[in-house]
């Protein structure tokens, strides 16, 4: 998304400067906008950067959050972060979770969008079913999923009744299956959003182009690959960035459904930070983890942005 914003800005400014006399006047004509963006900057940047600064300061302390005399420990908390095996596990889970959920959500989102643009009956009903999970808070849905994936839960019940009883297992109790369960809940929750964005983006593809392709004899799959997919490329890049940010921020679902367990199998940075800062009272260490999260997010943002931009230029 960031990639596109910058190219868009370029488009707003540069092509006009090349065309006629309007461009030269434009910078003069264009009123200054500092004051317009100021309130948003004061609130968001002010509050959030203040919090980052404060967190950075706390990350150098050995502090339980209440003691009046925290001791300064320099970079010791960061050294601890790098030595903490759970931190590395959390990073691994974040990467896996991002890749899997992004790919599946994208595939499902495009599929649903294409299907619902294909004049199926009762489209609104499907749309609502897909979007309701977006609306529901994880705090609400977590107990439902705990029940569904319990050993005597509905998921195993369905498996048994469709003749796959052999696959029934305690999904949330095993390190090997707990993370896939968490990922499937994430997919359940966010596919509606992906779908809506693709649905909207596909609405922008001109019908003439599609019809022309049909006249040329292109089938459904061919149309999807060579017209629809390129047409929604921007949305895909934006969603990749948003999913990556979402993966880094993951907290509610693993915290509420599996408590980061069993045996840290569903630990994410968010759950680790929460556990360290609040129940365990290692506020300094939690702050160091928070700063690591921010650094990772920035690296990732820059990486995705530059890659996205390169591709744009190639096109």
């Amino acid at each position: 998304m960031t990639a596109t914003t910058s190219t868009r800005t370029l488009r707003v400014g540069s092509p006009k400067q090349a065309g006629g006399d309007a461009p030269r006047k434009r910078p003069l004509l264009q009123p200054r906008g500092y004051l317009w963006i100021l309130p948003a900057l004061v609130l968001s940047v002010g509050l959030i950067y203040y919090c980052i600064g404060y967190t950075g300061y706390i990350s150098t302390l050995d502090w339980n959050g209440t003691a009046p005399d925290p001791t300064s420990v320099g970079a010791a908390n960061y050294v601890k972060v790098f030595q903490d095996p759970v931190f590395w596990e959390a990073i691994q889970h974040t990467i896996i979770s991002f890749l899997v959920t992004f790919v599946i959500q994208t595939a499902l989102g495009i599929l649903f969008a294409v299907l619902l643009h294909s004049k199926v009956r009762l489209g609104v009903v499907y749309k609502i079913v897909l979007f309701v999970p977006v609306v529901l808070a994880p705090a609400i849905t977590a107990p439902v999923f705990r029940q569904i994936f319990a050993y005597d839960g509905q998921f195993n019940w369905v498996l048994t009744h469709v003749g796959l009883g052999g696959l029934a297992q305690p999904w949330l109790a095993q390190s090997s299956t707990a993370l896939p369960v968490i990922m499937s809940i994430t997919i359940w929750q966010w596919t509606g959003m992906t779908f809506i964005l693709y649905y909207a983006a596909m609405g922008q593809i001109e019908t003439e182009v599609l019809e022309a392709a049909r006249i040329d004899g292109a089938g459904n799959i061919r149309t999807l690959v060579s017209i629809i997919w390129p047409g929604i490329r921007g949305t895909t890049i934006a969603l990749a960035t948003l999913s990556a940010i979402g993966a880094l921020k993951t907290f509610d679902i693993p915290y509420l459904v599996s408590m980061g367990g069993p045996n840290f199998a569903t630990e994410f940075l968010g759950t680790l930070i929460y556990r360290q800062s609040i129940p365990l009272g290692n506020v300094g260490y939690g702050a160091a983890l928070s700063i690591m999260l921010l650094v990772l997010a920035l690296i990732m943002g820059i990486f995705l942005n530059t890659r996205g931009r390169e591709k744009k230029e190639v096109r």
Partner: peptide, 22 residues
Amino acid sequence: KEVYFWMLLAALTLPEVVLLTP
């Protein structure tokens, strides 16, 4: 402009949990 915009976007990456202590 872009600098300010980026500063805002960086704030997108911040989870609520991180804000709690500050």
